[in-house]
Design a binder for these strands. Structure first.
Lengths: 113, 113
DNA sequence: TTCGTATATCGTCGATTAACGATATAGAGG
DNA sequence: CCTCTATATCGTTAATCGACGATATACGAA
């Protein structure tokens, strides 16, 4: 047992493997818990193709700071970066947010019953 | 704390009022960015009726610490507490998470297209 | 009034975060 | 070779967070 985070191989959009732990959900939420990182996620959502250093211009913080925000999102599994020297092409990992989305939807749904 | 959250006069669950700012979304995510607070939210989701000091026992941290987590959730608008001396009865504000849920669903949906 | 119960707040401390500039890395092109 | 571009990492700083015990608050009951 011990949870394992179940990497969810290819098919279904998160089967349900034992429900995510509070630690898992919190780490996703934490990664989203900064305006600059929300900004980045939205950016990647609209230009669904990846982006390079444009993110730095877009968020308006120092390059090193943005790089750090990208690292945090990457570590949380929310985005991934594909190297295309000298650039890196970032994109969302859509399924990564599903566990948290599930909880939030459950809470929202609890409202209209 | 400003932010306004657009209380939305009539019934509907947040129509779209200008789209939430990154700051708003980040503050919601941040409030959820700790295992103890996820734990609390889930607790309030299952026992949808409110709870008192049982939360303290449930999460297993010092009473003052739990009180602080509850305050953070309250400040973010995620929960509210109704005083029933000497207890306080906490419950979820289901609509509070809708703006973040919307973004997460958009990201998740971006996956199967 | 005094006691007990449930919560909130205070003060402290160590850990983590966010931001920056400076520097390192690594390939493309001259 | 050297330079340019895009990105990552390092080192530092100030600010915020998380946890705790101690204390304050506020009411209902004895």
């Amino acid at each position: 047992m011990s949870v394992v985070t179940s990497k969810n191989r290819r098919g279904s959009p998160l089967p349900d493997a034992g429900v995510a732990t509070p630690e898992t959900l919190a780490s996703i939420a934490k990664a989203l818990g900064h305006p600059a990182r929300i900004h980045i996620v939205r950016l990647l959502l609209e230009k669904q193709s990846c982006i390079g250093c444009d993110i730095v211009d877009e968020v308006g913080l120092a390059q090193s700071t943005v790089s750090e925000h990208l690292r945090i999102l990457k570590d949380a599994g929310v985005i991934s970066g594909e190297i295309e020297r000298p650039r890196v092409c970032y994109s969302l990992n859509p399924e990564s947010l599903a566990p948290l989305a599930k909880l939030l939807n459950a809470v929202s749904d609890a409202g209209n019953e």
